[in-house]
Design a protein around this nucleic acid. Structure first.
Lengths: 340, 340
DNA sequence: GCGCGTGATATGAACGTTCACAGGACCTAG
DNA sequence: CTAGGTCCTGTGAACGTTCATATCACGCGC
């Protein structure tokens, strides 16, 4: 038995109380310049006093705008939640909030594809725009959204020849910078420990590492792990190749605890005998001993760029023509070493 | 110049195409049992074919229900995002989704109090219910919401004599269990390293530790840290008290890297000479060497309980009478040791 | 003093849905 | 054959807002 929730004060109530018409109240809120100063002040005070807020549904129904951005949350493995998401969402909520928009979390129902969930959002006119992340190169959602003409943006680049409504971190460049940093600290033999998952950003980091190594004329090996258990063993193996590397580059912070343990097992002291670098600047990397040198993602700038692109699509009907790459910020912490 | 977004198919369009009235289409969606099987099938097929979805705003305006739960995200310190949130939100989105609800993230505008942001949500009829977390003992939001009679629930207990619409983890009991686990592994001298922040859940853990120590007849010291930098030094100090503790209980996983480093500095091997336990089961604790024994929060059960309480409030108008404490799950990993 | 322009305020309609109720078809029993 | 009941379907109204447009008041120039 759904309770009959009492409706609140309506625009009509305020209008009557103020002795003006509905439209005047509406204008006081949406176009204050159209009112005479004295009327505006009187009406504004009354609105405040009566606690009037325009009913969001009625406003949306009439005006066609919802001030909501839908975000389809990727289905995270509960064993390994994408810790990044919390920071990204945080930034998105802040950026959207400043533009007067809110974020609605949309999850495909069990057995429902992401594209289908998006179709629901669009057809039910639930949101003004859609935000995607964690898309693969050939994700059908991107093409689907592009076809519908519905405003959307993506965190993470899409392939060439496909809609370019994305913002992404220039992972490759950040990795090149990191290798350059190692080079300038005197390192000549640098090993790379990566994750073998086929995720685009991981491959960009790997590519960046190789470019950096070539550019700075460094030598080294690469190795990849598939799961938690392998990390220490594979890292030890890397550290044992000869000549022994003086630095270990990780493609993600999550490998760091394993790398530290491997170093210790090999009798090496991170921050003295061995430099270790990560990627992402997860909060806990600052708590490792020694704290980890890593790359911070410019989450707030990413969020700002995404919001501005979304709003451009919504307000001007024109999707952005090209993707936007933002630089990551290397964060130098004591896990870096200097080689004589 | 806001683009005139073309409106989609309306209920009227489908009705005309099917040769029936609006109400029949509405019934096909909201009360299928009211239609004859053949009509239902025909209409359903047509709805599917035309891609009709009821306009959310129109539906909300008329029926007064939004199928949205607003969640005010706590303003996280960007330097130390509450990593838990990502897992909690994940669980909430899933639990709410199964009940047909979505989560709307609401952030107070700069300079706006949380209570004021909630007032906006209620007055603008943006959501059917409100979810809070990270409330302090005397948070005014709780009383405010209670007064309005608006459906709400809280993750985290509220003080006695105040509205009890909460679900929480029984941190104290979990800590008692953890001490019991140490006791059953032969430990007799156990040290406690806590965080000094005045957060309710930290104080519950501390209280649980003391109760457990008394109950199992163990001896030990306690120490508290205020920031990142102190962790290693304070932990080393704890390990140096005599008689030296055989186990170190942390009030949060984030202290673990520092505790491991302290142990190493003292020449102790975690998992052999020293047991270490954490709290929260953050993802990275599994990657520490050795993996950390900790307490997993039953996030999914918490989310389910919160959603069921919210829906009860929404549908029956009756707020729950008492809070609900859920047990945490101790997770035994190699950082535990056995003392002869 | 009067017409006209300008800017503020008021009015009716419309957005798309669901509610309440009216109407109609069909079946069964008398 | 018809009355009465049971489903099923259709119609008008209403939700609260904003859009388009009408009306009004006022000041200014002639």
């Amino acid at each position: 038995m759904p309770a009959q929730r009492p409706r609140g004060v309506s625009i009509q109530d305020v209008a009557r109380a103020a002795g003006v018409s509905r439209q005047t109240i509406s204008n006081a809120i949406n176009a204050p310049h159209k009112l005479r100063p004295d009327t505006l002040e009187r009406v504004t005070a009354l609105i405040e006093e009566m606690g009037y807020r325009p009913d969001q549904s009625a406003r949306s129904l009439r005006s066609g705008t919802r001030r909501i951005i839908a975000y389809t949350t990727p289905e995270t493995d509960p064993d390994n939640p994408n810790a990044l998401m919390s920071g990204f969402l945080e930034a998105m909520v802040a950026a959207a909030g400043e533009a007067g928009y809110r974020i609605l979390l949309v999850r495909p129902r069990p057995g429902q594809s992401r594209a289908r969930a998006l179709e629901d959002v669009i057809a039910a006119r639930t949101a003004d725009a859609i935000l995607l992340s964690d898309v693969l190169e050939d994700d059908p959602c991107v093409d689907y959204l592009h076809e519908t003409g519905f405003p959307f943006a993506v965190f993470g680049r899409t392939g060439p020849g496909r809609p370019q409504a994305w913002v992404d971190v220039d992972s490759a460049q950040a990795m090149i910078d990191l290798v350059g940093l190692l080079s300038s600290h005197g390192h000549r033999r640098v090993a790379y420990l990566g994750t073998s998952a086929a995720l685009p950003w991981l491959r960009h980091r790997e590519a960046g590492f190789r470019i950096g190594m070539r550019r700075f004329g460094l030598a080294g090996h690469e190795a990849f792990v598939d799961g938690l258990d392998e990390v220490v063993a594979v890292a030890r193996d890397l550290l044992n190749r000869s000549p022994r590397p003086t630095a270990l580059v990780l493609d993600d912070d999550w490998l760091a605890p394993g790398a530290y343990a491997a170093a210790q097992a090999e009798g090496l002291t991170v921050g003295a005998d061995l430099a270790v670098t990560g990627f992402n600047d997860m909060p806990y990397t600052r708590l490792l001993q020694p704290p980890l040198t890593t790359v911070r993602l410019p989450l707030r700038r990413i969020a700002d760029a995404l919001v501005s692109r979304l709003l451009q699509s919504v307000e001007e009907g024109e999707p952005p023509e090209a993707g936007l790459l933002l630089a990551g910020d290397p964060v130098l912490r004591p896990s870096m070493t200097t080689v004589e």
